[in-house]
Design a protein around this nucleic acid. Sequence first.
DNA 1: CACGTTCATATTGTGTGCAATAGAATTGCG
DNA 2: CGCAATTCTATTGCACACAATATGAACGTG
Lengths: 148, 148
Amino acid sequence: MAGYPQFELDHQLCFALYTASRAMTRAYGPLLADTGLTYPQYVTLLALWRDPGQARSVGELGERLHLDSGTLTPLLKRLASMGYVTRSRDAADERRVLVTLTADGLALRDRLAAVPMSIASCLGMAPSEGMTLREQLTALTESLEASA
Amino acid sequence: MAGYPQFELDHQLCFALYTASRAMTRAYGPLLADTGLTYPQYVTLLALWRDPGQARSVGELGERLHLDSGTLTPLLKRLASMGYVTRSRDAADERRVLVTLTADGLALRDRLAAVPMSIASCLGMAPSEGMTLREQLTALTESLEASA
DNA sequence: CACGTTCATATTGTGTGCAATAGAATTGCG
DNA sequence: CGCAATTCTATTGCACACAATATGAACGTG
């Protein structure tokens, strides 16, 4: 009986992706522990650090991060309670909530400046390899989201 | 001011990985909806389908899936409540809990036989590309877990 | 300018993930 | 044999993810 080769766990791209993603998140844990941040919170700050004076709506952040309000609303409330962002209704459109970095939130960028290099040293690959892998994963995301 | 190029969201391998993994999980949703399974439950069944008569301890499954008991215990209880597995203490070592496929759990393997091909058609890449990507991700996981 | 539709965010409910702890069983060492 | 250390699973607490729904604001059409 040959079995069901299409179900072999070690042949599944999905499983390799799922496992690698969780390993990556765990790798950030010790690097973020000082600041009390989780990995999703760190990624949210990455989006905000891009242009620190610029306020973003929840929807803009969600589009950028591929996350919905059910995830972002409580996450942003926790960032606000830690003093890293502020949340306020947009005066021009009261449906929108604007998220802005605080001085403390911006200061985190300097405190965490070495994090990307620390992670890079754990990847076991050259920067060019990482770049290629990143591009393949981005293309994969686009294909998967287009099929939805 | 040049800024902080190391923090550019679109240059982060971690973010591409995080986003792709969630996109993949979402892609499985419609394919598993009929069975009531979630993606982590499906992956757990993949491990069990490998050798359907073989009982596994929670620890063995956790090692295979890189998941701990805090995740697996409730997940396996849900699979048991759906009738797809049974859970029982190992008579030879009462610390261990043995997980076994039921007939219904095994029958799912036939009901879901087309799932891997359906997913493959959403990936936007040739099988050989997917295989290479999978190998790179597996190597990445090993590097990240070795650095822990 | 009313009012139904659409838009933006919040809430609810379910199911992971994982660190930390607890608790029971087994093992190993003297 | 006795008991401390170890092993294995379960529990607890917290933080995502996301579908489904609710709520309120803004818009468009007549």
